[in-house]
């Protein structure tokens, strides 16, 4: 059973920090591959979507498409942080800091987008 993805993500999971339940080698390869599939999958999907619907006019994106794009990017970044960089339960405080970093980027970029949409009207 893959504990990391199902439980450990947000809850204050105590068992994940004890070595009994994982194999003692940190991130299991199952989880790692799953994370990779998820991240690559969204990348491929968005590439396909972009290529199908791409008129390449450079028209400004609405806030929802922009938000979607940034969500996909941030999700990938978060997956890397949480699983590949190993910001697990033992690094709670730091995880908060890194998530704050992602939120600042996300919010800042979208705020700029929103400002442009408003000025464009």
């Amino acid at each position: 059973m893959d504990r990391h993805l199902t439980v450990a993500a947000e809850s204050d999971d105590i068992s994940a920090s004890s070595t009994t339940l994982n194999d003692g080698h940190g991130l299991s390869s199952r989880t790692a591959i799953f994370v990779w599939l998820l991240a690559s999958g969204t990348t491929v999907m968005s590439m396909v979507l972009a290529l199908i619907g791409d008129d390449r006019t450079g028209a400004m994106l609405g806030i929802l498409p922009a938000m979607t794009i940034m969500m996909v990017g941030s999700l990938k970044a978060w997956l890397i942080l949480r699983y590949y960089l190993g910001l697990g339960p033992s690094a709670d405080g730091w995880r908060g800091l890194f998530i704050a970093f992602l939120i600042v980027i996300f919010a800042g970029v979208l705020a700029a987008q929103a400002a442009m949409i408003l000025m464009n009207r």
Binding site: A32, W36, K76, Y83
Partner: peptide, 9 residues
């Protein structure tokens, strides 16, 4: 992303 996976391994 793939290189990251390899690094995990």
């Amino acid at each position: 992303l793939t290189s990251g996976l390899f690094a995990v391994f």
